[in-house]
Design a protein around this nucleic acid. Sequence first.
DNA 1: CTATTTGCAAACGATTTGCAAAACA
DNA 2: TGTTTTGCAAATCGTTTGCAAATAG
Lengths: 167, 167
Amino acid sequence: MKGGCCQHQHLPRAIQQPLSELTARLKEKSRKITGPRQAILDVLRRHQHPVTNKEIHAALASEGCDLATIYRNMHTLAAMGMVQRFDFGDGIARWELIAEGEDSHHHHLVCTQCSMIVEIEDCLPEGFEKALAARHGFTNVTHKLEFFGLCNRCSRAASTGATMTVP
Amino acid sequence: MKGGCCQHQHLPRAIQQPLSELTARLKEKSRKITGPRQAILDVLRRHQHPVTNKEIHAALASEGCDLATIYRNMHTLAAMGMVQRFDFGDGIARWELIAEGEDSHHHHLVCTQCSMIVEIEDCLPEGFEKALAARHGFTNVTHKLEFFGLCNRCSRAASTGATMTVP
DNA sequence: CTATTTGCAAACGATTTGCAAAACA
DNA sequence: TGTTTTGCAAATCGTTTGCAAATAG
């Protein structure tokens, strides 16, 4: 269980890389530094939680670009290893910037009521995947792990029956 | 790590409940026993791995019913706690029958090449969720966990460069 | 100048929904 | 018979794609 020791609440995994460093990574892979590309990276840079393509699109006010351009760029960035995709089971892709070199592996705790997201450092015990791989003859085993529950505010609201929407 | 001790390869978590027992559960909740409903349950009963709506639809040969009917019934059955939904990150819902009363909690190991699926009994360490919930002030915490990798056959094919599709 | 990238519009695939007819209880 | 469920068709929603014009290097 990596990093499971400390008590960091809502650890702001804010990847505060300067935009210049991000565009430099594009150059390295001989990818063009375009307006939409920079704008997208800038939006990601300012979000410490996974964002959807639509959210990125909405966040691009003046620098606005086509939704298709965002979809295409997220693919490109993912292939370059600059962003990571997360799935919360609602069929909508969510993205987070990956810090250069850093071990970006982590998970989330999502409130099923208000969609509040907490970044989680804890993970499976050391060697878990290797043992699983060995036991079933698999190689290159990875995993997707996300937690769901009711956040403090929402569970309180639910118990007091405050703003319940129950029929 | 529950059940992580034994060496059951491909444990056939075949939920061999008689169809009559399944329809009985429908009755209990005062839901009508219709043709499509029985056919769907029968298909699920014979599959020990999660199946998609389309697969269920295809498996319904003569008893065939509309795809919309399957979607609606899966919702109903999920609400009744008779089936569980799994997401492998490809935006397609997959379903498995839940045995009456039994602790049906489990995960999967999916081959990213040939889509072969292995049911996994192993899970997070005891108390993991509770600790996480407590640490972040959440309640009712659950999780989604799926593993991905290359199965024996596919990883061997990959290393020998047999039927590679790499450009 | 040339390969890459973008905008636009149309295509796609999974899923949902409105509605009248059909079927269970 | 009255309510639930179904089939059919159309609508939605996230995502992908073809193509010609715009653009970075």
